[in-house]
Design a protein around this nucleic acid. Structure first.
Length: 982
RNA sequence: GGGGGGUUAGCUCAGCGGUAGAGCACCUGCCUUACAAGCAGGGGGUCGAAGGUUCGAAUCCCUCACCUCCCA
């Protein structure tokens, strides 16, 4: 199984690599390290723009100013000692004050965002020597507000961009917004309604002015929110779906598709939203299970007193019936061919037709045919040449054609009246409860009304196979992979896309009509006029606009200047990665891939990371009506952007939704606090040491070798996890590295070295170097905190001249591979420390009480003994668990509990120990050990295990039996010493 | 009706053939001059159910149950 899984992921990686080579981009390996990582090709001149205020910080951002003042007053209130030597002014003129004991993200986040913007670190040159990396933002609704889903996706996009940028890529994250036709128009219409008017009263032109004004008002929100999140977008390339360039792309695409016969206009049945007063696409219809009634209605036959029964959930559509259909092989009804039925209430005679779509098992096996108001009936009507009869209008009211009694009634009213009349006429055979699926307009929530109308359609059936092939052949990769099946399924059964909308806010369809009603599709009115052979002002443009998704579908290339062959397009297209929610896989991703392949011949992106849905702590979908919506900005305000980012990245695991609990953010804010304090400690203790750029393990002591090896190891793992979009695992690695390895173990071990208690070389240098690397590793996830701290590390300039954003991303360090004995020694040290700490608690010795450690030699344990008794080990044990002396002899009688460790016997004795070990506890442990021993022995007694299991596993089993046996002996001894029977 | 995902410690989730982990929560002791947003220690799980494959299954296969999403 391992082989299979391994082979799978290996193959994926190979595919990617092959692809990368084929295209000369998206290489898996970072490019050769820039020599100095100083200002490279990307670096823009920042000029010696002197900042008289001494800091990029508290610029014009109002919050920054306020916080600045608050902080200042705090500082003056608390009397501080004279600045330490390391306090100074960094290269960038950022005044570095001594670190505040209080960790407060608000004190620096806005400052760094500003610094980055002013430094233009995220502006990408094109062309560039460096390999391109590009992510297009899924453009949020321009007048909307970022929700948690945006925060999640933006975090991941930023994380990837920062990571690749640090690896030396020309990493572009292109920001922008979407005009979001319906959503935005609705908001303005609502505003108009409050003013007692509507768009029709205003007229198209003035209405659009209002729309643009509204857009202008809200546009800054998205920018501000992304800034606060730490987004490293290239704002010089920001795009809006309705701006001139993108509009041109839309017209171009439309005209081309039309000329290829893939866009056409026609009268078809569409999903009509009476709530929005426009047609909507199949995707915008949400199916819901609804309990309705099923009415069985008798239709008398013409000429005679026979009658047939037809079941329907929508009796009001009877008024538009034009036929009754039966299955051609249905023996029950074959004889009806050529006869006619009288539609009750309407009184019209309609023919019988035979059609294969009729389900014989449903109801009586007969269906009424209403081509104007049912998609299936529409098809039947076309097959049998039956003209539809429209009895419901665009507002959801009955038309004149429905008859005088019904005209003007709503659908519901008409239904009631039809049912009443049927009942009165004795034609209602039966009425029953009926649960079925009904389409609702996703946006307005009203029941979709199928209507026949003239709309524009895009035939994507020819593009779909290429999109399918792109995935199959690896040009496109979906992550998690499992979405591939959904992709296949949807694209295999794809239907024409209704692209016209009866709205005003959007790209008006580039089609003009002359006075004779002839249609001319062209890039502009002049061209249309030339084609029509008439004057431009005699043409009328189609009043409808295009589905918003039509322009979104072009986003990956229209934003780069398509249809022109621009430098940007050549540099950044196809893009590298798309990060978006699985919910718009069809709405957007599939359409981008189809249009991308169609117009550029390339998949618009190589990989798509599909995120789950952000839910609340209880796993409920966030919704305004439920009131469980969390606002990213408020969370940033409370916990800091880095904690929000870390939380979201940590929770993003493949194929899962994200239950977001604000408490969790508090936990990751604490993580920030931990890093803050660790850095504060390091800075106060490292003396004159500086970050080393060329550190090797040579001449270093065990703890230093160990932590550097850990950093190197984690760097390798994090890199792989980012590559695989496993942000959750990457975050865990980083969390563990900082908190457990660096803070809990290394810093404690470094203390004696820093204090000169132990003659260890270069401890300060290693501490700073580890911090430098670890902060760089963490930077893509927590950009603000890492910049704030990294800038304070003495010697950081040797790594990157201006900012951590452009410092190289650490990878595994070949020179940081320690001798194999290191791992054993560290393990031994940790076990002894654990024993001493456990005993301290068990024996109720005071936390600070000195401990003496007895180590009894054992056969074959010479190496372990040498290590534990070496002069460099005592300071470590003292720092980690308060051991003051080590004796190389059998433990004294006072040692309550003797522990087997690597062939030695170890026993700590404490000053002022109050209690012995609880015999009950020892007994419980003994039972546990004995059970484990029995299990382990049974395993070894199984000949099949011995012959078939790998050697290493068998050896491991043997070792564990030995250890358990020793443990049992010692426990028994301890019990005896405690005066208790086992 | 078809398909996807899920079911592991109180909660949220990793692990996906070698005998169970993390974070948070909980309990105990500590304000030990980096951090009480902290430190140290501890308790807690027959890995949804039943079969099968295997020396060995939380992990692979089959069946079932429940939860969720998508499509019809």
């Amino acid at each position: 199984m391992a082989r299979r899984a391994g082979a799978g992921s290996g193959r994926d990686r190979q595919n990617r690599q092959r692809l990368a080579l084929g295209r000369g981009r998206r290489a898996d390996r970072p490019p050769a390290r820039r020599a100095d990582r100083g200002p490279g090709g990307a670096r823009r001149r920042l000029g010696g723009r002197a900042r008289p205020g001494g800091g990029p910080a508290q610029g014009s951002h109002p919050r920054a100013r306020v916080l600045g003042r608050v902080r200042q007053s705090c500082a003056t209130r608390t009397a501080r000692p004279a600045p330490r030597p390391w306090v100074g002014v960094s290269a960038r003129g950022v005044a570095m004050s001594e670190m505040d004991k209080r960790f407060d993200p608000r004190s620096y986040e806005a400052r760094w965002q500003r610094f980055w913007a002013e430094g233009e670190f995220f502006v990408c040159p094109a062309p560039s020597e460096r390999p391109p990396y590009c992510i297009m933002i899924p453009p949020p609704n321009v007048t909307g507000k970022l929700h948690m889903g945006h925060a999640l996706q933006s975090t991941l996009q930023d994380l990837l961009t920062r990571w690749r940028r640090m690896q030396g890529y020309n990493a572009l994250w292109l920001p922008g917004t979407d005009h979001a036709g319906i959503a935005t128009q609705l908001m303005v219409e609502r505003e108009l309604a409050r003013e007692g008017t509507d768009r029709h009263a205003l007229g198209r032109e003035r209405f659009l002015e209002r729309m643009w004004r509204w857009k202008g008002q809200y546009h800054g929100n998205i920018r501000r929110q992304l800034d606060r999140l730490g987004a490293s977008c290239d704002w010089t390339r920001e795009r809006f779906t309705l701006d001139e360039g993108l509009s041109r792309a839309v017209r171009e695409a439309f005209v081309r598709l039309h000329s290829e016969g893939l866009i056409y206009r026609g009268e078809y049945i569409v999903n009509w939203s009476t709530g929005l007063d426009t047609a909507i696409s199949d995707l915008e219809v949400e199916m819901r299970s609804v309990e309705d009634r099923l009415w069985h209605v008798a239709y008398p036959l013409e000429g005679g007193d026979e009658r047939v029964v037809v079941a329907t959930t929508r009796p009001e559509t009877m008024l538009g019936d034009v036929a009754i259909a039966y299955h051609p092989e249905d023996e029950r009804y074959r004889h009806l061919a050529g006869r006619r039925a009288l539609v009750p209430v309407a009184g019209r005679a309609v023919p019988f037709v035979a059609d294969e779509v009729v389900e014989r098992e449903f109801g009586s096996g007969l269906v009424k045919v209403t081509p104007a108001h049912d998609p299936a009936d529409f098809e039947i009507g076309r097959r049998h040449g039956l003209a539809g009869l429209q009895v419901i209008d665009r507002r959801g009211r009955m038309t004149e054609a429905a008859g005088e009694r019904f005209a003007g009634l709503t659908v519901d009213e008409a239904r009631d009246r039809v049912v009443a009349e049927l009942r009165a006429a004795g034609l209602l055979v039966r009425e029953e409860r009926y649960v079925h699926n009904v389409g609702f307009c996703q946006r307005s929530g009203v029941r979709v009304q199928p209507l026949v109308s003239t709309q524009w359609f895009c035939d994507v059936s020819g593009m779909a196979p290429r999109a399918l092939a792109a995935l199959r052949e690896g040009e496109l990769e979906l992550v998690p992979e499992s979405w591939g099946k959904t992709w296949e399924h949807w694209l295999s059964g794809i239907r024409p896309w209704c692209i016209s909308r009866q709205l005003w806010w959007g790209h008006q369809i580039p089609a003009w009509y002359d006075e004779a009603g002839r249609c001319f599709v062209a890039l502009d009115r002049e061209e249309a006029a030339r084609a029509a052979g008439t004057a431009p002002d005699r043409l009328t443009q189609d009043p409808d606009v295009l589905d918003t998704w039509f322009s979104s579908a072009l986003w990956p290339f229209s934003t780069l200047g398509w249809p022109d062959d621009t430098v940007d397009l050549r540099t950044f297209y196809p893009t590298s990665v798309l990060v978006t929610g699985f919910d718009i896989l069809f709405f957007w991703v599939a359409r981008m891939v189809m249009t991308g392949l169609h117009f550029t011949g390339r998949s618009p992106f190589a990989r798509v990371h599909l995120t789950g849905l952000v839910r609340d702590a209880e796993g409920q979908k966030m919704s305004k009506t439920k009131g469980n919506v969390l606002d990213p900005e408020e969370l940033i305000e409370e916990y800091g952007a880095d904690a929000v980012r870390f939380t979201l990245a940590q929770l993003d695991s493949p194929g899962r939704d994200i239950p977001l609990d604000a408490e969790r953010m508090a936990g990751y804010r604490a993580f920030g606090n931990k890093i803050w304090n660790a850095t504060r400690f390091a800075l106060s203790r490292v003396g004159e040491a500086r970050v080393a750029s060329d550190l090797t393990l040579e001449g270093l002591a065990l703890p230093e070798r160990w932590i550097l090896a850990r950093v190197s190891e984690v760097a390798g793992r994090v890199d792989r996890h980012f590559e695989d979009f496993r942000f959750d695992l990457a975050c865990s690695e980083l969390y563990h590295l900082f908190w457990s390895d660096f803070c809990d173990w290394y810093i404690e071990m470094a203390k004696p070295g820093l204090d000169g208690e132990s003659a260890r070389p270069r401890v300060g240098e290693v501490t700073l170097t580890v911090l430098d690397r670890a902060l760089r590793l963490l930077h893509p996830v927590m950009p603000f905190l890492t910049e704030e701290l990294w800038q304070r590390l003495p010697g950081h300039e040797s790594v990157s001249a201006r900012t951590i954003c452009l410092a190289p991303y650490p990878g595994p360090e070949a020179g940081w591979t320690p001798p194999e004995s290191d791992a054993e020694q560290i393990e031994l040290l940790r076990r002894v420390v654990a024993i001493v700490r456990n005993e301290r608690a068990d024996q109720k010795a005071p936390p600070r009480a000195a401990a003496e450690l007895w180590i009894a030699p054992g056969a074959g344990a010479e190496a372990a003994e040498r290590f534990l008794l070496s002069p460099s080990t005592l300071p470590l044990l003292r720092a980690l668990c308060g051991v003051e002396r080590i004796h190389r002899e059998e433990p004294p009688a006072g040692a309550l509990h003797r522990h087997p460790v690597s062939g030695l016997v170890v026993a700590p004795v404490f000053e002022h120990a109050e209690g012995g070990v609880d015999p009950a506890r020892l007994r419980a442990q003994l039972v546990e050990v004995e059970e484990a021993l029995t299990r382990a022995r049974a395993r070894l007694e199984n000949p099949a295990f011995l012959s078939k299991a790998p050697e290493a596993v068998v050896a491991g089993a043997r070792r564990s039996v030995e250890e358990l046996a020793q443990k049992r002996t010692r426990l028994a001894e301890s019990l005896a010493a405690a005066g208790a029977a086992p």
